[in-house]
């Protein structure tokens, strides 16, 4: 898995779709610069040339000039027509309709994390979404609660996730790497910490990853982790979280089956370390205010056991 850092920007297109959109971005910048130069240029000229001087008589009273008006209407109209043509063209190229294709991944926005389900496999993951590079991939975007929005600037179009509606997005990632984005529709308290990480793998790596992740969770390695597993199921953890291969089948929180293989926690809020997991379990509200996870009053040992268990789930 390559971990190339990339510049988040709409001017750094990394998918075929983004490439299709980018000429339009450039045309727009050129047109806008042109108009700005005309307006500012005219203003500079006018303000220098036509300053009032002491004792000026009333200047010539010009009421109208049909030719000038015709240009004022005509030129913007032509520019607008050009952009309209380009818009329609690009729009229809990048958004072919979806007719019964099976999506590669179904991504569900939740307050405030992303659930990714891979149809045809048992893989369920959260926040860090793996996709194959070099292949045209269909994303199905849904929401479980409020409106979220899927946005990775380097991949081109964003798309709203609306409860009760299925939206689709095509993406053909150019090369393997890590691509970042964020939820782009205000969705409540932790809208800021609802960041997206897409890890694009080469097709072979991707198959490998799918295979790994469709397996059930590893059994606890040591006694501390074993104790953690017991606590996880006995206390209310399992009511919300699921860990495949164990009795924990909760649906309202992120799937933790392979938690330890993710690099970040809480939708990009912090890196995935034991220390951070511990801090979060001890005081979810303090770490991520508004988060749905309740605060449990655990003994120190209990937390340590839970952390040992969770950080073992590769």
């Amino acid at each position: 898995m390559s971990q190339g850092s990339h510049v988040i920007s709409i001017f750094n297109p990394q998918s075929a779709e983004a490439w299709k959109l980018s000429p339009l971005n450039n045309y727009l910048i050129i047109a806008c610069s042109f108009i700005m130069i005309v307006v500012v240029g005219l203003l500079i000229y006018v303000t220098i040339k036509f300053r009032a001087k002491a004792g000026d008589a009333e200047p010539k009273q010009i009421y109208n000039n049909r030719t000038v008006e015709a240009f004022m209407i005509g030129i913007p109209f032509l520019m607008v027509s050009f952009f309209f043509y380009q818009t329609v063209k690009v729009m229809n190229e990048t958004e072919p309709t979806v007719q019964g294709q099976v999506p590669t991944v179904v991504i569900t926005g939740r307050q405030w994390w992303w659930q990714a389900v891979y149809p045809g496999t048992t893989v369920v993951t959260a926040n860090e979404i793996h996709l194959p590079a070099g292949k045209k991939v269909l994303l199905q975007l849904e929401s479980q609660d409020v409106i979220h929005d899927w946005w990775i600037p380097s991949f081109g179009p964003k798309m709203d996730m609306i409860p009760g509606v299925k939206n689709y997005l095509w993406v053909t990632i150019g090369k393997p790497g890590v691509y970042e984005g964020a939820c782009s529709e205000f969705c409540g308290k932790q809208h800021a910490w609802m960041r997206i990480k897409v890890i694009a793998d080469s097709p072979a790596d991707y198959q490998q990853w799918l295979l790994n992740k469709s397996k059930a969770a590893l059994p606890p390695a040591d006694t501390l982790a074993l104790a953690g597993a017991v606590i996880f199921n006995k206390k209310s953890c399992a009511d919300c979280h699921s860990i495949r291969g164990t009795p924990a089948q909760g649906k309202s929180g992120p799937d933790l089956t392979h938690l330890a293989s993710r690099t970040t926690l809480l939708a990009g809020m912090m890196t995935n370390t034991k220390e951070h997991i511990k801090r979060f379990i001890n005081n979810p509200e303090g770490v991520k205010p508004g988060v749905r996870m309740p605060r449990f009053i655990f003994k120190k040992d209990t937390v340590n056991a839970l952390v040992a268990y969770l950080s073992n789930l590769k």
């Binding site: 971005n25 727009l28 806008c32 952009f83 729009m91 929005d149 946005w151 600037p153 179009p157 964003k158």
Partner: peptide
């Protein structure tokens, strides 16, 4: 001009709500 950007649908797709 930045408003016109939102009328050009593909640009709006990239920049709305940002």
């Amino acid at each position: 001009l930045s408003g016109v950007a939102f009328a050009v649908v593909p640009v709006d797709w990239q920049l709305t709500d940002s």
